[in-house]
Each structure stands twice: as structure tokens, then as C-alpha cells.
Design a protein around this nucleic acid. Structure first.
Length: 492
RNA sequence: GCCCCCAUAGUCUAGCGGCCUAGGACGUCACCCUUUCAAGGUGAAGAUCGCGGGUUCGAAUCCCGCUGGGGGUACCA
């Protein structure tokens, strides 16, 4: 397979019927990467031709989704462009015009069959175990019959006059030529009775008019690919390069859906995934760029992406790997100020941080826990003791290795020693406590654990001494005093 | 049922006729580091390249069949 070098015009054309699924987002990403890779154009088009399934407001949500991922379209709603309008419901006259032409040329015909008849027909075919499809009742109506139906005001749709025999071949860039028997196709509707185009027709007309060179779309369109080719032939135009992207599957190999957990891209944002990680993960799902690496910056992805890097097989969406990657971005890829910016709203909502909290302090705190954050919201639980006073129970302070009677004098001594430390930084703090443990004849682990619980209220925390350092001398000593008080209440 | 696509470890993949005693990553396990948990480091287990036939001096790589999985079969996209 060859490299794509000249500037492409690609598009993503969602139907405003719901949220953007991660599989759709991956399609967006591949299209966008190809556009950027070749210095081409990424077009956004709204395919709102099914008025019954329209969901108000979702166009805005979709835009929010792709912007969150750092993707912008070059042409489309709002930004405009030379081939607008970019909303199909605003292009009805265009479809009508093309449909009329096919009608005149005998490549299409009016069908007066009612939806009820069609449903009945399908039911019968299914009952008889026959392939379903239109029986072409209106294909060869006489002029008189047609005139009569028109006069009676019977609504009509426009159907494509599919060749009865022969074959049609679509070339898919990942799979090569795919040949379909025309006989297995029926006379599909291109323009509904309400004047709106049906998918394949709208797409072919718009992609042509918008000068789309490459169509990267979901595999679900592959089996009906012959319709696109037939339509191009009838309209006397050349098809674009087709790339049918494999589906995103759930772990049980079924189509990924709500019942498998998060599927809407924005849900991942709300769960605490960073867009860089989701982008990276999705760009790698069903594709590979060098085979020996998983983490790629957006720039590298643009540089390395090409159609021949895509795998034609469906891929299972692995939450665990995404989570690993998210943790990697949080711990290694984002700068500390950046990470702090993303944690701040969460800490604020949790009531841990206010406008008075020094930015510097928040950054230091986040810096101590970032290597164990997998999902952003975890920062709250991980750092709460930096912002609120813990009050561990005496036996928690003593821990599993000490009794309160043993812990009390140890912590009293520890407090004295720490108070005497002149330079409040990691090394002096650590050596002071290590020598204390030795003097007391205690295991460092036992002493450190008591200190940890006394100071953080937890048995799990960042390194003890860096925690003390960031907490500061006063807070650390105050917490130790409280712990000593708590212990003496029991040990006395 | 009919039509279409796909097929390398549990998962994502490298591989495009000899470099493969099949490489990387997630996950799993072990060890190291170590004050806890992570992170990090090292290593291990895990794939008769779905199965069966060909083609070829030689096949994970090409062809055919089978099986399995997925998709489509609407006046939905």
C-alpha cells in the first residue's frame, strides 16, 4: 500500500441522533490525522436527514467532544467554507436537483408504495425465508398509471433503478476490490417522500460537491458499498478513495454499547481521563505506527499516520490499557502546572481547596501523588489530608506492629527530634527519624508507619518525609501533638 | 436465510515469501528498589501464527475450502 502524500479532503459526517461514541471519535481522529498528515482539509458535515431521530442539542455536544480532544474542523458549520451549507437539511434543493436528473435519465423512478405495504412485503418475505427487498412494483409503471397516482395525490419516494444483473466493484483501500452481485441489491430509495435524501444518496452527492477525496467511515457501510458506486456511475462522477474502518468491540466481542460501561467520549472526560490519553489510545486502536512504542504525541501521530497503518480487523476496546495510558500521561507526559490546573476544579468541588489556597502548595501536593493517579478524580482522595486535619484513632496510630503503649513514647520522642531539626527538608528529616528508630531499637518500618498515620491519618501515603516537607513544620508538629494526645488518652 | 468483511498470546499490535528458535505494549506473576501504596527497573509465563488443503527449494506472510467472529439486510445513519 502506498503512502498518502497529496493533500486530502476528508470529512466526518455525524447524524445528530445522540452522543459521540468512542468508535465515532476514533473515526474523527483517523480522518483528522490524515488531513493533517497530508496538509489537507478536514470537513465537518451534519447529516440530519432523519427528522424522527433528531435529538436537539447534540450537535453542540458533539462539537464540545471533538474540541475537548483538540480536534477542530477546517470547514463546516460555524466556520463555513466554500462548499457549504454543511448541514444536509439546508441542502434539500441540491438533492432534489440530482434526483430529478436521475429521474429524467431513467436511472431512478418514483415509487408510490406506502410504508405499510413495504412493511407487509418485508414481513412476508421473512416469513417465507426469502431475502428481503423491494419487489420493484413501481419500477415499470406506465405513464397512465403514474399520472393516475399523481392525480390522486399519492405521496412518492424516488428509488434508484438498480441494474438487474452484472456486478459492481468497490475498491477499499484496506481490503482491495470488493465485488457485489447487482442482483442481490434492490431498488433502494434515494429521496424519501418528505424530500430528504437517504444516506447513500446524500453522502454521494455531498462528498462529490464538497470535493471529498477520501472517505474513512465505519465498516457498517461496507456491505452496502455497491450503492455508492452505482450512484457514482449513474451521476457520471468518480468515487473517492474508500477506507472502511473496523468496528470497536466490547470484551465479549459484541459491538461496544452502553451496557459495557462508558462509551460516549464525554463520559471519559467526566471519569477523569485526559484528552491526550484518549486520543493516543484511540489512534492506536486498530492501528500501529512503529510496533515498538505506545506513547505518541499528537505531532508524532500526524507525522506517522497513514492509511496503510490501519488494521482491517475489528478491535476490542480495552479499558485497562486506556487507564494505564491515562496514568502514564498524568505521571509522565503532563507538566506539573498543567496537571495541577486539571486537578484544581476537582479539589475545589470537593471543598478541599479555596481561592485562598496557595497555588504553589497545590502543585507541590499534586506532585507528590501524581504517580498513583490513574483517573483525575482520584486526586481528591489521595490528597485530602493535605487540606484537612486527619484524626486517626489511637490504635490506628499504633498500627499493627506496635501497641499504643509502645507508640506513645516513640511519637513523643519523634516530635522532640523533629522540632529540633533546623533544615526542614527530606534528608535531615529522614536521618533524624532513622537515628531515632535505631536508638529506640525499633524497626524503621514500624516507627515510620506510626508517624505516617499520625501525620496523614492513612496507612497509605506519599513518602513520609516529602509529605512532612510539603505539609510544613508547624502542621507536622501539630498533628504529631494531637496524635500523642490521642495515644496518651488510651495508653495512660 | 441471503450478502459483505475479518482471523498472530486474555487484549491492542509488529510482521507484507527466507532476517521468526514469531518482536513490542496492556494485563498477569516473580524479583529488585523501598518507610506504606504507587511509580520505576529486571525477568517470567503466555501464540502448534483458527483448522485443513494447496503453491513454493522455503509460508504467519500467496491461493482455495472449512470453522469461528463481526457487520449489513429500513422512506436509519
Amino acid at each position: 500500500m502506498s503512502k498518502t502524500t497529496s493533500p486530502v479532503r476528508v470529512r466526518f459526517a455525524p447524524s445528530p441522533t445522540g452522543y459521540l461514541h468512542v468508535g465515532s471519535v476514533r473515526t474523527v481522529i483517523f480522518n483528522w490525522l490524515l488531513a493533517r498528515h497530508t496538509g489537507g482539509t478536514f470537513v465537518w458535515r451534519i447529516e440530519d436527514t432523519d427528522r424522527e431521530r433528531l435529538v436537539p442539542g447534540v450537535i453542540e455536544t458533539m462539537r464540545e467532544t471533538v474540541r475537548w480532544l483538540g480536534v477542530e474542523w477546517d470547514e463546516g458549520p460555524e466556520v463555513g467554507g466554500p462548499y457549504g451549507p454543511y448541514v444536509q437539511s439546508e441542502r434539500l434543493s441540491i438533492y432534489r436537483e440530482h434526483a430529478d436528473r436521475l429521474l429524467e435519465e431513467g436511472r431512478a423512478y418514483r415509487c408510490y408504495c406506502s410504508p405499510e405495504r413495504l412493511a407487509e412485503l418485508r414481513a412476508e418475505q421473512q416469513r417465507a425465508g426469502l431475502p428481503t427487498g423491494y419487489d420493484r412494483r413501481c419500477r415499470d409503471l406506465s405513464d397512465a398509471e403514474r399520472a393516475e397516482l399523481e392525480a390522486s395525490g399519492t405521496p412518492s419516494a424516488i428509488r434508484f433503478r438498480t441494474p438487474l444483473d452484472g456486478t459492481t466493484t468497490m475498491v477499499d483501500a484496506l481490503r482491495g476490490p470488493i465485488t457485489y452481485e447487482n442482483a442481490s441489491l434492490d431498488d433502494f430509495i434515494i429521496l424519501k417522500s418528505d424530500g430528504y435524501p437517504v444516506y447513500h444518496f446524500g453522502v454521494v452527492v455531498d462528498d462529490y460537491l464538497m470535493k471529498i477525496t477520501h472517505v474513512l467511515r465505519g465498516q457498517e457501510y461496507l456491505s452496502a458499498g455497491a450503492k455508492d458506486i452505482l450512484l457514482h456511475d449513474a451521476l457520471g462522477i468518480s468515487p473517492p478513495v474508500y477506507v472502511h474502518l473496523p468496528l470497536v468491540l466490547a470484551p465479549d466481542r459484541s459491538r461496544l454499547s452502553k451496557r459495557h460501561g462508558a462509551v460516549a467520549a464525554l463520559e471519559f472526560r467526566d471519569l477523569g481521563y485526559v484528552p491526550e490519553a484518549l486520543f493516543n489510545y484511540l489512534a492506536l486502536l486498530g492501528a500501529a505506527y512503529s510496533g515498538d512504542r505506545e506513547i505518541y504525541s499528537r505531532e508524532e501521530l500526524i507525522e506517522l499516520f497513514d492509511i496503510d497503518r490501519l488494521n482491517p480487523a475489528s478491535a476490542v476496546f480495552d479499558h485497562r490499557k486506556l487507564e494505564w495510558m491515562n496514568g502514564y500521561y498524568i505521571n509522565h507526559a503532563l507538566t506539573l502546572p498543567d496537571l495541577a490546573d486539571r486537578c484544581l476544579p476537582l479539589l475545589r468541588d470537593a471543598g478541599l481547596v479555596t481561592d485562598e489556597t496557595p497555588r504553589e502548595y497545590v502543585e507541590q501536593v499534586v506532585g507528590l501523588v501524581k504517580d498513583r493517579i490513574k483517573l483525575l478524580p482520584e486526586v481528591v482522595e489521595l490528597t485530602s489530608f493535605f487540606f484537612t486535619e486527619p484524626s486517626p484513632a489511637p490504635d490506628e496510630i499504633a498500627g499493627r506492629r506496635l501497641t499504643p503503649e509502645e507508640a506513645l513514647p516513640a511519637l513523643e520522642r519523634a516530635r522532640e527530634r523533629l522540632e529540633a531539626v533546623t533544615e526542614w527538608s527530606d534528608e535531615p528529616l529522614e536521618s533524624a527519624m532513622r537515628s531515632l528508630a535505631e536508638e529506640l531499637g525499633m524497626k524503621t518500618g514500624a516507627l515510620f508507619m506510626s508517624l505516617r498515620v499520625a501525620i496523614t491519618g492513612r496507612t497509605v501515603s506519599p513518602g513520609l518525609f516529602e509529605t512532612m516537607r510539603v505539609l510544613g513544620r508547624d502542621t507536622t508538629l501539630a498533628r504529631l501533638s494531637r496524635a500523642v494526645d490521642a495515644l496518651s488518652g488510651v495508653a495512660a
